[in-house]
Amino acid sequence: KQVQVGDEKYTFDTPEEARKFAEKVAKEKNLKVTEKNGNFHVE
């Protein structure tokens, strides 16, 4: 599963790991997490 933050992409083995990372980054940057096709976008 992938997490996209701006132009950066991070790959994780499980959706749970990806979601945790996305939520942590979103909180730090005051952004929101959206899920698209099983991948997460922080925007």
Rank of each mutant, 00 (worst) to 15 (best):
F21A: 02
V5M: 07
F21Q: 01
Y10E: 01
T14E: 06
E17C: 08
K1R: 13
A22K: 01
E8I: 13
Q4S: 11
K27N: 11
E35L: 14
K32H: 11
N37I: 02
R19H: 06
E23G: 04
E8P: 02
F12Y: 02
K20P: 00
V42S: 03
V25S: 04
V42D: 03
V25L: 12
A22V: 04
R19T: 03
V42H: 02
K20S: 12
D7P: 10
N39W: 14
G38E: 04
G6W: 06
D7W: 10
F12S: 00
Q4N: 10
P15I: 15
V25R: 04
Q4L: 15
E17N: 05
N37Q: 07
V42L: 14
G6V: 05
T11S: 11
N30Y: 06
K27P: 01
E28D: 12
P15H: 14
K20W: 10
N39V: 15
V3I: 02
A26P: 00
K27L: 13
E28H: 07
F12V: 00
R19Q: 08
A22Q: 00
Y10H: 06
V5F: 09
E28P: 04
T11E: 10
V25M: 10
V5D: 04
N39A: 14
D13W: 06
K24A: 12
K32E: 08
V25E: 06
K20I: 13
T11N: 10
Q2E: 12
K36P: 03
K1D: 05
G38I: 01
N30G: 15
K9F: 14
N30Q: 08
P15E: 14
F21P: 00
K32D: 07
L31D: 05
K36M: 11
H41A: 08
T14M: 04
F40V: 04
R19V: 06
G38W: 00
N39L: 13
E43S: 13
G38C: 02
E43W: 11
Y10D: 01
E23M: 10
E43H: 13
N39F: 11
K24C: 07
V33W: 07
Q2G: 07
G38T: 03
K36A: 09
R19A: 06
L31G: 14
E8C: 12
A26K: 02
E23R: 03
N30R: 06
K36R: 13
E28T: 06
T11A: 08
N39R: 09
T11F: 15
E43F: 12
N30M: 06
T14Q: 05
A18W: 00
E23F: 12
K27Y: 11
E28V: 06
K9R: 13
E43Q: 11
N39C: 13
D7H: 12
E16T: 06
Q4G: 03
V3C: 01
V5C: 09
K29H: 14
K1S: 15
K9Y: 14
E35M: 14
R19N: 04
V5H: 05
G38F: 03
A18T: 01
H41V: 15
K29Q: 14
E16S: 07
F40C: 00
E28W: 06
P15F: 13
P15T: 14
D7M: 12
V3T: 02
G6Q: 06
R19S: 05
V25A: 06
T34M: 08
E8S: 11
L31E: 06
N39P: 03
T14Y: 05
V25N: 03
A26V: 03
F12I: 00
N30E: 08
V42G: 03
T34H: 10
D13C: 08
Y10N: 02
K29E: 08
Q2A: 10
T34P: 03
F12Q: 00
F12D: 00
G38K: 03
E16V: 05
D13F: 07
D13S: 12
A26L: 03
E17W: 00
V3S: 01
Q2S: 13
K36F: 11
N30V: 04
A22I: 04
V3R: 00
V3P: 01
H41G: 05
N37P: 00
A26E: 04
A26T: 03
V33R: 02
A26R: 01
T14C: 05
Q2V: 15
V42R: 00
D7L: 12
K27D: 08
N37G: 11
N30S: 08
T14R: 05
F12P: 01
T34F: 14
D7I: 10
R19F: 09
Y10Q: 02
F40S: 03
G6Y: 08
D7Y: 11
F40Y: 13
V25T: 07
E35Y: 14
E28Y: 05
K24Q: 12
